[in-house]
Design a protein around this nucleic acid. Structure first.
Lengths: 393, 393
DNA sequence: CTCTATCTTTACACAGTGTAATTATTGTGC
DNA sequence: GCACAATAATTACACTGTGTAAAGATAGAG
């Protein structure tokens, strides 16, 4: 849109360069200049700043061609971020570097309806342990991120009906003096896919990302937009069957009442908590009765309807689905396409709407939150989070 | 979000100042500085530029208080824009100033399914007439806007299934050398309400704007966002009744199949084209049978469901509805609330979601397109559109 | 007609970045 | 091992946009 990019503040430019490095996991100056829309002269200035701030590494490598570049610029591996994640029945704490390494992790099972007071109690203990671990090793946590299912700026969380003011106060007190970013689980997953698992992610352009688990959460991924601007939404509470099945939200006919883990648990014949645990193995549909398989297909059809309705409001060229549908054999999974075909304006056509299934990122927690922390850190240009220990040195 | 506003290009700054003047219809320097986030010194510089470009008027008025300002700054009334609008069964051409005055207008009835070739034929003639009118009076059209129902950047128009490349080529050739902006009817209406009828508009913050006529179109109005970034969507093709009534799009159960003008025409007992024509008078429901009224209420209930589903994906603090539901007595209209209550997560509560009905802006055409043209003009900072006639003088 | 409160403009400084000239780096050929 | 060449990386300079602060203009009060 911008004919000539408007000048940015130094912080914004640093953030742009660092964000590019986070995405690419190391780049030559030419590529940096291109990605961040700067001249190489400006890149040089910015890198000089980042170098003296101890934020980048310049590893000498043999030149790729005659006279070519020899310094591969990357974010320093010893920059440390932490993630806290509440998802899929677990509360997880983790510490690692900007490259998604997980050097410390603690995971605890929590009930599906975790009370705010219980969360606070657990968080207080585990957070202290995590900080103690980092302090013992002299590792300075530069940014912390907490991801919550259902979180949004509007502070009305359908998953965890907590008092958000109280939560913010609690967290501010808890993490002080560390900078904290609060975000939605789906956005954190988007950050994970963008910054940590970008090489295995099936789509590169704009798309709809859906996570089907206890709820049906979605986010519109705009490739060029900053992750923090993404609008997460709960597709699960779209009413697709007037007067239909009772949902935990009190309404009837919500998508979630048909397609959440709880709803399909009896159909698949596994406890809700175990369905995703199996890793990226296919759910064994062979042992299901034809009736059960038909039911499963109908549920997937409804999911397709919900996706189609969502895409009618927000047309997008691709869809990525994570969660239990990814574990279903394709023969059954394609019921989603039928649902899409009956709702998506103009009908579903595989060539116009690529549909990708990726393994539910269970067992990765809290790496999604850590990826968001890494993003938050680079977004500040590495300036807000003062390295407290190194100040002493 | 921005701690300190990043510096803008001069064009952007000019655009910001002019956009503020278009919204406020005249302001003192203090207010301009505040609205456009500039110091008064910078405002002075920008106004000096705009003055020498012949874009603003500074009317001397008595100071409102001791030592107060005496120059009210406003956009010049003789700046001329044109709008072309295709909506509600009419193709309209209009010329006027930035203040929404309508100095020239031609309106022609068109069939609901206007063929692209027919549009081209009519447009060619009417456009020439409009230009002739302006030329005779020495009025220089600085910007033209065309608004189309269903238009979107994705170039898949469910209302007018035209070849968009052909349309763009046709228009580029037709309007040459005038600058042309192409937009969606709902966005044009949003521009109309923001810039021309802002004083009678019921909401000032972010909200969902819906227009229920031949289709059910919506747009999310972000108060602080530029209008061109708005994403219009066709709510009408959300499937709310699986296997329900057949819609013109080929699917079953679309909202439009229940709530479009065509769908309610037999219920109200008026031809579809006449329902909105009556102005802002209530549709006489007294002469309807109880069965008809019940049907109407059910249709409004479905509309409420569609709105609730849309708001679940994109939570917003208010809704504004324009179109035929605004003409229905409140006793029946409130069926929308019931539909909302059964879909909106957390249920409908009047204090949390103000719902406003405004008269369908029929008979205003093409003022919405002209408002968008005015917006497009100020967005360029008044620089792209060269005043051709005055160059001679 | 002068004074004064306030608006309005102008002079100056500074941040950010592109252009172009300068300096550094490293593999190649002898 | 050394000069050369090809390209990378840095630096000097200029320009844009805007804030600060001082100077200038305006109009009502007395």
């Amino acid at each position: 849109m911008l004919d000539r990019p408007a000048t940015r503040s130094r912080k914004e430019t640093r953030a742009a360069v660092m964000e590019g490095l986070l995405r690419s996991k190391g780049a030559f100056r030419q590529a940096i200049a291109h990605d961040s829309r700067l001249t190489e002269a400006s890149v040089s200035r910015i890198l000089t700043e980042l170098r003296s701030a101890g934020l980048i590494d310049e590893s000498r490598i043999p030149a790729p061609y005659f006279g070519g570049p020899t310094a591969l610029v990357s974010l320093r591996k010893d920059i440390c971020v932490a993630g806290i994640e509440l998802s899929n029945g677990r509360l997880s704490f983790g510490v690692g570097d900007l490259g998604c390494a997980l050097d410390y992790v603690e995971r605890m099972p929590v009930p599906a309806r975790l009370a705010q007071a219980d969360f606070e109690r657990m968080a207080r203990v585990s957070f202290a342990e995590m900080i103690a671990w980092a302090d013992q090793r002299g590792r300075v946590i530069r940014q912390i991120a907490l991801s919550l299912p259902g979180f949004s700026q509007s502070d009305t969380n359908p998953i965890f009906p907590w008092d958000m003011t109280r939560l913010r106060d609690f967290l501010a007190d808890l993490v002080k003096p560390y900078p904290l970013a609060l975000t939605n689980s789906v956005i954190a997953q988007a950050a994970f896919h963008r910054y940590c698992a970008s090489d295995v992610y099936p789509v590169s352009g704009d798309h709809l990302f859906l996570f089907v688990a206890h709820g049906v959460a979605g986010v519109v991924v705009h490739e060029s937009a900053p992750i923090e601007t993404f609008n997460p939404f709960e597709l699960g509470h779209m009413v697709i069957e007037r007067g239909g099945a009772l949902c935990r939200c009190g309404h009837r006919g919500c998508l979630e009442a048909y397609t959440s883990l709880q709803a399909i648990s009896p159909v698949i014949g596994l406890p809700a908590g175990d369905i995703l645990r199996g890793g990226d193995q296919f759910v064994a549909t062979a042992q299901q009765t034809p009736e059960q398989r038909a039911t499963l297909r109908d549920r997937l059809f409804l999911l397709g309807m919900g996706i189609g309705n969502a895409l009618n409001l927000q047309p997008l060229p691709a869809v990525v689905i994570s969660g239990w549908p990814s574990l279903i054999p394709e023969a059954d999974r394609c019921a989603i396409l039928d649902g899409l075909n009956e709702t998506l304006l103009g009908g579903y056509r595989a060539d116009r709407l690529p549909l990708h299934f990726i393994a539910p990122s269970i067992g990765n927690d809290p790496r999604a939150a850590m990826a968001y922390a890494a993003y938050s850190f680079v977004s500040t240009g590495g300036q807000d989070a003062a390295p407290r220990l190194s100040e002493i040195a």
